[in-house]
């Protein structure tokens, strides 16, 4: 396999999707762990410490570049696979096979991915971009108080806040279904064929797909409903 085939053959493309996907899964663990600090209920002290560590340290900042590279690759390759696959059946069926043979979310990875992307853009616009602008993209100091920023973003009854929360919750639900298929699919793409381990990975995948998005979704809700100070 040439390096080109790695990105152009049908199996190669899937490998790229799987690797970048699992890389993003790892990132989410870090992200959800750090963000969970909001529930320390200490006025954001612990959370801001963590945020500072991530934002004012060259190592995570460098990893961030890799993260974006992986993310962009995942998005571009994903869209390409989706469009290419859709083009393979010029005339559609009159009656669809639908849910009788597969889960709806396994067939809707593209759609779910786009929903997540919409959420992501909104999410970056809320936090990451203001923070990095305050720092300057090469700077390590001068970040904003992200805890307060979160609180401001999700508190109140204005329609903007409600829309934001809606986008976040929908984004998290989409992420949950995306992961429910994505984790085990990635492992199959890496060649996991042993039924025993497929069972383990599937269980872990489903658990992850429920717990992590649920935690993310609870964050704006916690602020909004005043579960934390």
């Amino acid at each position: 396999m040439t390096f080109k085939q790695m990105f152009t053959s049908s199996v190669g493309k899937k490998l790229v999707m799987g690797f970048t996907g699992l890389f993003l899964v790892l990132f989410l663990i870090v992200h959800v762990g750090l963000n969970a600090c909001i529930w320390a209920n200490d006025g954001g002290e612990m959370f801001n410490k963590g945020a500072h560590f991530m934002g004012a340290n060259w190592v995570p900042r460098l990893l961030e570049v890799g993260l974006f590279a992986g993310l962009i690759l995942h998005i571009i390759q994903g869209l390409m696979v989706e469009f290419s696959n859709r083009s393979k059946r010029a005339i559609k069926y009159d009656v669809a096979f639908g849910n009788r043979g597969s889960k709806w979310y396994s067939r809707s990875m593209g759609l779910l991915g786009i929903l997540i992307l919409i959420f992501l853009i909104s999410h970056l616009a809320h936090f990451w971009i203001p923070n990095r602008s305050a720092q300057g993209f090469v700077g390590l100091e001068g970040e904003i108080d992200l805890y307060t920023k979160m609180k401001d973003t999700f508190t109140g009854d204005s329609w903007q806040v409600m829309v934001t929360i809606l986008v976040y919750v929908v984004g998290c639900i989409a992420l949950g279904f995306h992961l429910a298929h994505g984790v085990q699919s990635a492992c199959r793409t890496f060649g996991l064929s042993n039924p025993k381990w497929i069972a383990v990975v599937s269980a872990l995948g489903y658990a992850y797909a429920i717990i992590v998005p649920l935690m993310f979704a609870l964050m704006p809700l916690s602020f909004h409903f005043g579960w934390i100070d």
């Binding site: 696979v81 696959n85 096979f97 043979g101 396994s106 793409t189 064929s193």
Partner: peptide, 29 residues
């Protein structure tokens, strides 16, 4: 097209071929 592991193939296979084989192929590839 490329496989996205939905499992619809396995559900209709008259000989009940398992998608485990796809994973085997991926690893070999």
């Amino acid at each position: 097209g490329a496989c996205t592991n939905t499992g619809a193939c396995e559900a209709v296979c008259p000989k009940e071929i398992s998608i485990t084989n796809i994973a085997r192929l991926n690893l070999d590839y």
